[in-house]
Amino acid sequence: MSLRSGIGDFFNPRISGNAPPPSEKTKEPEPEREESGTWRETGYSATDEEAHRDSVYSIKSVLHQTLEVFMVQMKLFSKMKWTYILLFTALLIPIIALLAPDFIDILSTFGYSTGYSTTKIAGLLFFLPLMLGLMTSIMCGTQMPSEFKERTAYMNIPMPMSRASFFFGKYLAGFVMCLGIFMFAYSMAIATALKDYDTIFPDLITSSILLTLVGVMAYSATAYCIGCFTKKGSSIFPFALMSFIIPLIVVIICSQTDNYTLTLLPMFLGEAALGILGASMTGSAGMVILGNMDLTATWLMLLIGIAWTAGFLLLGYIRIKRREM
């Protein structure tokens, strides 16, 4: 098999792609056409190719199934009003910056240095950590419960489709959707900063985007997993948990022990994404310890975030896999 056909089969398997073609040697001798079919009286006659007698039907590959579920979920997102409300929220960045420049200047009173492009971008993304929790909760928190609530899961899962595809396809759509909104916010913030600056620190922006990407992964996995364990699902509980409850507990522990290792947890990825740009504070519960965070270990934060995502996805998958339909 050539590389091209191998890759092609992986992404776009043919109907008979999973089964080997029938061997010439093992082929049974064909019976007489008139005797084998039931069409003798009608006079109909077709070749094997015309009658698809040599076609072997099999279910689509797991990747194909996952992409199908992904597209179905994306279609649902395209009908959700929240998708457009959240996009509008990101669109507010340049609108506020252009129509109310004093609002941005107020940020300098919170210690933002307005002399650098990256700090200005961080100022424009002031509420990113808070929105990270809110948006992922809205997009991913109720995905799975609504499938069971609206009974659509009972139609989907009995189909020739693995539960893994069903589970991960839906998560992937939620993650991609949230990522799109945050990338939109970044592009708006950088474009707005272009008004005053032409140059930026590419490594800092890349680190910030990577931290946000892993943050979206971890937050959406948490919200998605929590949704798998609840009947009705909630957009508020995962948000409160990731943006307020755990950060505040960590803040108390850190301040009592004077050890800030716990700030490596994914709840502080949003703060780290702004802190690496030079932000002195953020619009979130974790802002009080931003100055104490060790942003030299962003790679460790990324690893912990990825592990957190994998853990919560595994937990949610086990729950869905064991669920009796």
């Binding site: 592009s187 950088i190 272009l194 600056y197 032409d198 140059t199 930026i200 620190f201 590419p202 922006i205």
Partner: peptide, 10 residues
């Protein structure tokens, strides 16, 4: 800073 802000926005 030396990177292009326009490139990143794009």
């Amino acid at each position: 800073p030396s990177g292009s802000a326009a490139l990143y926005a794009a």
